[in-house]
Design a protein around this nucleic acid. Structure first.
Length: 661
DNA sequence: AAGATATTTA
């Protein structure tokens, strides 16, 4: 057999190419010939196993080693960290000092900080190790400082990161990117931008860090503009993450044409079979309301992972295709995947919106028993929604009392809405009284309250609620809707028509109104919050943003094409009725993505089965603007700002995304 | 002789 140095060379090659078979043979040889006395070969073996993803082999070798040195420790800690076992790494680190009597060196520090970075709650631990690092002989090491910048960035302490960053005399691209990413991921957009501009050398990583920060913070337009700028600076796209980020921005904004262009770019650049990009495309088509295209892309993702399956399951669920969600779930199990917490949220949501009570309950139980997943508040909210929508109100009320979370506004509102729907006034009043004690954040919940009290003839309570509503109205986020017409996109706010085609839009709506009345439409003014005369309320409904956007679509979109509109809030009940009539009068399919789900209007019917008024269970408030936390999927409709600038954004995008100018 | 730092989707 070969010499020591040749063995080393083979181990290095095995590690580099992640092909462990040769390396394993050498392991056997090392044991047979007693070469494990010296730590060099075993250390390389640990490294090789780590690189090849064979954590157990690495651990058992490490445990058996008689003479571990600092390199053995660095190798095993790095292996654990890369295998997503950072907790384990931090847990065994003290043994290095107490049992093996070895002091950490710069490699150890860098790895430990990386481990803390992947555990955002480990900031305290990280700070202790930081103190130790400062008093060590390695306190000037710049790689360790880079790792520290990254750790503080990921532990939501960007200012701590900045202090370390400023202490690095010769900054390389890695630490610049870590710092830009630190600002970007913590919502410090202008700091991120400012620092990015000062970067002496920018590479693809830095662009990705910056752009993904903007997208994650709800500014998809800004993110896409930067992507276009990056393209025009001819930065080579040598990995898929930037593409998945850009596609993700198109999903948030529901800009289908831009999404399609990005899809073309993906194909041109040869990332069609990348899972990261494939999953983003599936999500994009689902969120742009073309669920059939999502399924098509999904079917063509070659090596599906848990994200692919869950994205598709959730997408189908949001489009009201419960059977499809459940069928996908079966295929997923068949393919050998283990569902996770998000998968079950999608599944229970699907059951809830399709009235599949028993299925949904079984899934909830199976999640706990068979998959050992501890249900979160979102899971309980979905289950609660399932029971209450199906009229199992007592069971729902018991659940809200028994669940191990404090029920929030959204939970009570879900139950109240169901009491309303199923005409259970007694429980409704009980729930309404409960809600009235809370300082409600979602103004539209008060409409439910008011209607509930009015139904019971409790006029004192009605006037009390109305008074609160008058104050709330001021704070209410304006409703707006937008429509993507390919080369331009337009945003409408409720109550105003700022558009060059104003007259045509209003004219069309008038005309449609006449035809709707012939078909028996009577405006339902319960959905107007203001205390106004009846005709004034009707005038408000007439200018709801989703109608204006649909009208523009009918006027300008290619004849026969589906009209796709996105609304920041939920579609109001009256608009829901109107859109059912409009789709049938015009013979056009209309799809509206609202804050809660997708509504496919076709042939006078809606895919939601008219249970639109169901729960607001999945709505949460965050900061000033209402963002929607549907299905615990934070990225859902993160547009806290409407994409109003996108009219100008598109044209350059079309030239620059696919090819250079 | 060997080990370390930045971008990512539901």
């Amino acid at each position: 057999m070969a010499h020591h140095s040749q063995l080393l060379a083979i181990l290095k090659a095995s590690a580099k190419h992640e092909t462990p078979s040769k390396g394993k043979q050498i392991h056997a040889h090392i044991i047979k010939s007693g070469l494990e006395q010296c730590s060099v070969l075993p250390n390389n073996l640990i490294h090789m196993y780590g690189k090849c993803g064979l954590l157990q082999n690495a651990l058992s070798l490490f445990d058996k080693m008689l003479h571990r040195d600092v390199v053995s420790w660095a190798s095993i800690l790095a292996t654990l960290t890369h295998a997503d076992q950072s907790r384990h790494a931090l847990a065994i680190f003290p043994n290095m000092i107490t049992l093996d009597r070895i002091e950490p060196d710069n490699y150890i520090f860098a790895t430990l900080f990386r481990a803390c970075a992947s555990l955002p709650e480990a900031a305290k631990h990280g700070k202790q190790v930081h103190a130790r690092f400062l008093s060590s002989p390695f306190s000037d090491d710049e790689i360790v400082k880079s790792a520290l910048v990254d750790m503080y960035s990921k532990c939501r302490l960007p200012d701590n990161a900045r202090r370390v960053f400023d202490s690095i005399p010769h900054k390389n691209c890695v630490c610049w990117t870590a710092m830009v990413s630190g600002y970007a991921r913590n919502g410090r957009n202008s700091d991120a931008m400012h620092l990015f501009k000062r970067m002496p050398v920018k590479d693809l990583f830095s662009w990705t860090a910056l752009i993904s920060g903007f997208v994650q913070n709800g500014d998809g337009v800004r993110g896409l503009k930067l992507f276009v700028e990056m393209r025009s600076e001819r930065v080579e796209i040598s990995d898929p993450f930037i593409l998945s980020t850009a596609v993700g921005a198109a999903s948030d904004l529901a800009v289908l044409e831009l999404g399609r262009q990005l899809h073309c770019l993906v194909v041109v650049l040869g990332y069609e079979s990348s899972i990261v990009v494939g999953n983003a495309l599936v999500d994009m088509y689902a969120k742009c309301s073309v669920i059939s295209a999502a399924k098509q892309v999904f079917d063509n993702v070659p090596q599906k992972d848990i994200f692919s399956w869950t994205t598709m399951i959730v997408g189908a669920a949001q489009h009201g295709q419960a059977e499809e969600s459940l069928a996908l779930f079966n295929s997923m199990l068949h393919a050998g995947f283990k569902p996770n917490d998000v998968t079950f949220i999608g599944l229970i949501y699907a059951c809830s919106h399709a009235g599949l009570v028993d299925q949904g309950r079984q899934l909830f139980d199976s999640m706990i028993k068979d998959y050992k997943i501890v249900p979160s508040l979102q899971h309980y909210t979905c289950l609660l929604d399932l029971l209450s929508r199906s009229g199992l109100l007592i069971e729902a009320e018991n659940l809200i009392q028994a669940m191990p979370f404090e029920p929030d506004e959204a939970c009570w509102a879900a139950l109240l809405s169901a009491c309303n729907h199923h005409n259970n006034t007694r429980m409704g009043i009980r729930v309404a009284d409960r809600l009235l004690l809370l300082n409600l954040r979602d103004p539209s919940v008060y409409i439910l309250l008011s209607n509930m009290y009015a139904g019971a003839g409790m006029w004192d309570q009605v006037s009390k609620v109305r008074k609160i509503m008058a104050v709330m109205e001021v704070r209410k986020q304006p409703g707006y809707s937008w429509i993507d017409l390919g080369k331009e996109s337009h945003t409408f706010y409720a109550g105003e028509v700022l558009h060059p085609m104003k007259d045509e839009i209003l004219g069309l709506l008038e005309e449609l109104g006449v035809e709707m009345k012939k078909r028996g439409y009577v405006p339902d003014t319960n959905f107007v919050m203001h205390d106004l005369e009846k005709h004034e309320k009707e005038a408000q409904l007439f200018l709801h943003s989703e109608r204006l956007a649909v009208a523009l679509g009918l006027l300008k979109a290619v004849p026969g094409m589906t009209i796709r509109v996105v609304k920041n809030l939920r579609v109001c009940g009256d608009c829901h009725t109107v859109l059912k009539l409009v789709c049938s009068i015009m013979g056009r399919e209309i799809v509206v993505r609202d804050a809660n789900r997708f509504h496919h209007f076709n042939d006078g019917k809606c895919s939601c089965g008219d249970f639109w008024s169901g729960s607001k269970a999945l709505k949460r408030c965050k900061g000033k603007a209402i963002t929607i936390k549907l299905l615990h999927l934070d990225r859902w409709c993160k547009c806290t700002k409407p994409p109003e600038e996108s009219c100008r954004m598109y044209k350059p995008a079309i030239c620059h995304i696919g090819c250079y100018p």
